[in-house]
Lab assay of single mutants.
Amino acid sequence: TSIVNVSSSLNVRSSASTSSKVIGSLSGNTKVTIVGEEGAFYKIEYKGSHGYVAKEYI
């Protein structure tokens, strides 16, 4: 489990790309479970499925 480190919110994306669809967002200090990594993104558990967040904010 890791913590989201942002002051406002962090986009959760459908794939490991800044141009991919935003499927949701997480607020600062939210706990997330990392299940993998791809480039500059972590794959996380998100709403019963998976999403991707930028590593620099975790």
Rank of each mutant, 00 (worst) to 15 (best):
S8Y: 12
K31I: 14
K47P: 02
T1L: 12
G48P: 03
L26D: 00
K31E: 11
S8D: 12
G36W: 03
S20L: 03
F41C: 02
E37W: 07
G36L: 04
N5R: 06
S8M: 12
S20P: 01
L26N: 00
T1S: 11
S17C: 08
G51R: 01
L10N: 05
F41E: 01
L10D: 03
F41L: 01
Y46A: 00
K47W: 06
F41H: 03
R13V: 12
L10A: 14
S19L: 10
Y42T: 01
G36K: 04
T18V: 11
N5E: 09
V4C: 14
T30H: 08
G39C: 05
S7A: 11
K47Y: 08
S20A: 14
G24E: 02
I3C: 15
N11H: 14
N29R: 07
S2K: 08
V35L: 14
K47H: 10
K55Q: 05
R13Q: 14
S19E: 13
K55W: 03
I58E: 04
G39L: 05
S9D: 11
V53D: 01
K43G: 01
S25D: 06
H50R: 04
S20D: 03
I34M: 02
I23D: 01
A40M: 11
A40T: 08
A54R: 13
Y52A: 01
I44M: 01
V12Y: 01
K55M: 07
S27V: 12
V22E: 04
K55V: 04
S14W: 08
K47I: 05
I3A: 09
S25Y: 13
S15C: 13
S27C: 14
I44Q: 00
V6T: 13
E37M: 09
K43R: 09
E38P: 00
H50D: 05
V32W: 04
G48R: 04
L10G: 06
S7E: 11
V6P: 09
I23T: 03
G51Y: 02
R13N: 10
I58D: 03
A54E: 15
S2I: 15
L26W: 03
G48S: 07
K43F: 04
T33W: 10
E37R: 05
S20M: 02
S9H: 12
E56F: 09
S25V: 15
E38Y: 08
V35H: 04
S49Y: 08
I58Y: 06
V53Y: 02
T18I: 13
S49L: 10
G28Y: 13
V35C: 07
V6S: 12
Y46W: 13
G39Y: 04
K55P: 00
G48L: 05
K43E: 04
V12K: 00
S17D: 12
K31C: 13
V35G: 01
H50V: 13
G51Q: 01
N29E: 08
I3D: 06
A40C: 14
T33R: 09
F41G: 00
K21G: 07
N11P: 15
A40H: 10
S2Y: 11
E45R: 07
I3H: 10
I23E: 02
R13S: 06
V35D: 02
A16H: 04
V35Y: 05
R13F: 15
K43T: 03
S17H: 10
G51C: 03
G24P: 01
K21N: 11
V32K: 01
T18H: 15
V53A: 03
G36Y: 03
V6I: 14
T33E: 07
K21M: 11
I58R: 03
G24M: 06
T1W: 07
N29F: 13
T18G: 10
V12A: 01
E56P: 05
K43N: 02
K31P: 12
I58V: 10
S7Y: 07
Y46R: 00
L10P: 07
K47F: 09
G28Q: 13
Y57D: 15
Y57W: 09
G48Q: 06
L10Q: 05
G36F: 03
S27D: 14
S20V: 02
N11Y: 13
E38K: 06
K21D: 11
I58M: 07
T33K: 11
Y46Q: 00
G39I: 03
N29W: 13
A16R: 02
K31A: 11
Y52H: 01
A16G: 05
S49W: 06
I34H: 01
G48K: 06
E56H: 10
K31T: 13
S19V: 08
Y52C: 01
I3N: 07
T1F: 07
V22D: 03
V12H: 02
T30L: 06
G48W: 04
Y42F: 10
N11A: 15
G24K: 02
Y46V: 02
V4F: 06
Y57N: 10
I3R: 06
V4N: 08
K55E: 01
A16D: 02
K43A: 05
K31Q: 13
V32E: 00
A54G: 10
Y52N: 01
E37Y: 05
R13M: 15
S8N: 11
S27F: 09
G28T: 12
G28A: 15
I3Y: 12
H50Q: 05
S27K: 13
I44A: 00
S49M: 12
I44H: 00
N5P: 08
I44F: 06
T30W: 07
V12C: 03
S7T: 14
K55R: 07
N5F: 10
I58W: 07
S17L: 06
S15H: 14
Y57G: 14
T33A: 07
T1A: 13
Y42N: 01
V53W: 00
R13L: 15
L26P: 00
T18N: 14
S49N: 09
S7W: 08
E45Y: 07
G36R: 03
S19T: 12
G39Q: 04
N29C: 14
E45V: 12
S8K: 12
K47D: 09
Y52K: 00
V32M: 06
R13G: 04
Y46I: 03
G51L: 02
S25A: 10
G28D: 09
L10Y: 08
Y52I: 01
A16T: 05
S14E: 15
S14T: 08
S8P: 09
S9V: 14
S7K: 09
K47M: 14
R13E: 03
S9L: 11
Y52V: 00
Y42C: 03
